[in-house]
Amino acid sequence: MHALVVQQLRKVYRSGFEALKGVDLTVEEGDFFALLGPNGAGKSTLIGIVTSLVNKTSGRVCVFGHDLDTEPEAVKASLGVVPQEFNFNLFLPVAEVVINQAGYFGIPRREARRRAEFYLKKLDLWERRRSEMRLLSGGMKRRLMIARALVHRPKLLILDEPTAGVDIEIRRAMWAYLRELNAEGTTIILTTHYLEEAESLCRNIAMIDDGRIAAVAETQALLAELDAEAFVLTLTAPLAAAPALAGLDVKRLDATTLEAQLHRGQTLNDLFAALRAAGVEVASMRNKQNRLEQLFLEMIDRGRGIAPAQAA
């Protein structure tokens, strides 16, 4: 079963700006799917159309086999959305936000209260249930948006940058909870600018750029496409020039910092053996950038589909 099918979706905003230029996308039931792309690529526009917040210009959207045009109620009943921007009544108490949302979905009051309690506890907001919304911190509001999106138990959960502005500890907790939901059968689509998040959570990835899908692939396959990975090395003693290491691509950034590119087939052991032979001692090392980030930038730069990354 396809959880989501989007065909030839176009969106021209009233300003005349074409935000989506014919998007085709399929997400399978049970998937954990990332929608990645630079600012302004059209991610939120796409999510807005699927969740009935934005009118489409043309194209087709189907959710679990229900067409948005002909069966909007069935589509909406199976969708939960966490939007990018806060959209709360700031003067309502936290619990009421969740209970009202359940009510809008037709869930009777008593059951709505039970579910609000369940999800507020799950997202660690139960203690704050009586505070007014405006008194919550940004991270708490993000979590409340998740509770609100889950209260009608959607089969497809769509999150638009759910971890923006959320601290590391809570982000990890959110990840764990999203994994749990996915394991229980909820299909999840999320957008994020933290590519590490997509790499660790998502099985499949779509890259969207300038209103078009640039690539769709399995996360693992995408990462395997990478044939170069960059590391930044901090040295214990300053160097006047980059050491010449046979077959290895090493640049000097400053007196105590080197950047090394490892290509397919080369290992960190090879690098360290060569450095040791050259008498260079390394104090610490880090990835120059997240691997997915690197791939992402290469793809965006070329404005085209996947191809093996070339050595820089």
């Binding site: 959305v81 709360f88 009544n89 700031l90 009202n100 809008y104």
Partner: peptide, 18 residues
């Protein structure tokens, strides 16, 4: 107007209520 201004009208737009 407030629900539109603060965008919480979206809570209704995403719901299956006609």
């Amino acid at each position: 107007y407030s629900s539109k201004f603060s965008r919480y009208v979206e809570e209704l737009l995403v719901s299956p209520a006609p």
